[in-house]
Nucleic acid binder design. Structure first.
Lengths: 121, 121
DNA sequence: TCAATACTACAACAATAATTGAAATATTCA
DNA sequence: TGAATATTTCAATTATTGTTGTAGTATTGA
């Protein structure tokens, strides 16, 4: 993972609104939610929500799919696992006995979403 | 974990400099590094580094310990695991078959640092 | 086609964060 | 004690983000 990708992800989750959106969408897994549902659930004006959804999507944390006149958003959970792997690269380097299973944070929910470029229907 | 704690952690890691600092300190595990070593390794002016170290420490990502006239910093890795758990609370709720082992991102490196309040000597 | 709906893009302003240099504090060692 | 070192605090400047309203695009269904 590129450093810029990582900082963009962290930046995305550093806003209370965006963190709420991401956590909400994690709860809705494969189903996801359309923008209007997110806005009313979290009580954020649509204009403002759109701004935050764009940031999350550009960071890769959300996948968006058009559904008639709705935009359906879903959380990209595998990206979070990549991020964790990036953070812990060379964790405790040279002292493996100190650093056993951090990286076993493996592939959960990889089946929730297909790769980001081709969201499920 | 409180939402504000989580956003503070993400905010901390949304700066390239701070991300470099945290990753560097993860690599140095239990040993940690003193501020001057971090500054020269990453080529950041001490004044600026101090600003970023303070942010990381306030977020709980770093523990600091005075060592004569040096300040030794160490990464708080367990906090990252708490953060991951917070993110994935209720992940895919109601559909456990979709969400198996994300939370098995368990307790690596818990022995690197004692709880943040009492840094190792 | 026309009105209604869902959402986004743009522009302006307000709020917040990053960087720097100068000065302050605290520790070491001669 | 006094000079040197390590780091932080403060204040000023610059840069970046967040929020809101208005206007725009795209889809639906009468």
């Amino acid at each position: 993972m590129e450093k810029q990708t990582a900082t963009q992800i962290f930046e995305s989750l550093s806003s209370g609104i965006r963190l709420d959106v991401y956590r909400l969408l994690i709860r809705f897994g494969k189903t996801g939610l359309v923008a209007g549902e997110i806005a009313s659930t979290l009580n954020v004006p649509p204009t403002n929500l759109s701004f935050h959804l764009k940031a999350l999507t550009q960071a890769g944390l959300l996948a968006v799919e058009q559904e008639g006149r709705f935009q359906r958003y879903r959380a990209n959970i595998p990206l979070m696992l990549d991020l964790i792997a990036y953070l812990t690269e060379e964790c405790c380097s040279g002292r493996p006995e100190e650093c056993a299973d951090f990286r076993s944070a493996s592939s959960c929910c990889n089946d929730i979403l297909p790769p980001l470029s081709t969201p499920s229907t």
